Simulated scan of single mutants.
Amino acid sequence: MSELGQRVNEAQEEALEQQAYLVRFLLGHTLVPLAGRTFLRGVLPTRDAVRVVTGAADAQVGPASVAYEIPLLDDDDEPVTAPLVLGWTRTLAVGTPPGSDASVMGMALVRVDTDTLEPAPPPLADQALRVLHTLAWPFVEAPPNPALCGFLFTGPDSMRLYLAVEESDGLIAADVRLTGALTALLAALPSLVCEKERWAPDTADPHCSHTVDLTAW
């Protein structure tokens, strides 16, 4: 592999690690409103950024949701922290979303200029959750495999999981239902998403290379 190719691969791996870190942190904030009646509905991985999706608690993927694209690195090329991403998202969730001519998967896409945006200060509930997460889910040297790099609530009882599968040239999006035999599904998920015969293209979703439909599993 050329030196340039190696640098590209290293940058991609660092981006995936950063996206997985942001997802782990933001998962705990899907159950309470960010502001008013606006909830965190997803975190979509894309090149050099994450797209934080907000909407009502029961919002479907479409015009009722907004995707805010936030760069993974700051002006000094340092990775942005998850509390900062959450603070920016809380600020954006207050009031009317900025206008945008861009869209993704039927949602308005707003590219965020973090230089001009003040993050909302964390409420005490955020601080308490951070303490509990640190103690309950301590950092481990070997992260989960495949890594969860994004998620999106797609319906009242369904969601899409974006997973970094080594055998794929991009992320695999697994569609799952939240009802049924979840324990069995979660145990089998790492092997199911690696079965290439299950992979299918999805031209409507730019955040993955293939999808796997596990809603009937």
Rank of each mutant, 00 (worst) to 15 (best):
A128Q: 06
G150H: 09
G55E: 03
E3H: 14
A20G: 11
H207C: 15
F151S: 03
E14Q: 14
D202Q: 14
V53C: 08
T46P: 00
P201N: 10
A200C: 11
A181N: 07
Q6C: 02
E167G: 12
P119F: 06
E166Q: 13
P156C: 12
E166G: 11
V43K: 04
Q12E: 14
A142M: 04
A49E: 14
E69Q: 10
L192G: 03
P83D: 05
V212M: 02
T203H: 09
G95C: 05
T215R: 14
E69D: 01
V8K: 01
R24S: 13
P98W: 03
L185I: 01
E3S: 15
L92Q: 02
A11I: 10
M107C: 09
L26G: 10
D74V: 11
T89F: 03
R198K: 14
Q127E: 09
A67D: 10
R130D: 08
P201Y: 11
A142E: 15
V112H: 01
L73K: 13
L135P: 01
M159Y: 07
L92I: 05
W217N: 01
E14T: 13
T81P: 04
T179H: 00
C208M: 12
V212G: 03
A120C: 06
S2W: 06
A59Q: 06
T89I: 14
N145K: 13
L189I: 05
D101W: 01
L152K: 13
A59D: 12
V80K: 08
P119N: 09
S209Y: 01
V32I: 10
A82C: 11
C149H: 06
A108N: 06
L109K: 08
T54K: 03
W199M: 05
P98D: 05
T81M: 08
A125M: 03
V110Y: 06
P121D: 11
E78W: 12
C208L: 08
L92R: 02
A64I: 05
L185C: 01
Q127T: 12
D169M: 08
G170W: 06
L214C: 02
T114M: 05
V176M: 04
E166D: 13
L189G: 07
L185K: 00
L178G: 01
T183Y: 00
V112Y: 02
A20K: 06
H29I: 03
V85K: 09
P45M: 02
P143F: 05
L117C: 09
V80C: 09
P146M: 04
G36Y: 02
R198F: 10
L117K: 12
V94Y: 00
P71V: 13
D157R: 14
A125Q: 06
S209F: 04
L22T: 14
R198Y: 14
E197H: 09
V140G: 10
A216G: 08
G180D: 00
R130Q: 11
F151M: 09
M107N: 05
L16V: 15
T91M: 03
Q127F: 02
A20T: 13
L117I: 10
L129W: 03
K196L: 06
Q12R: 12
L34N: 07
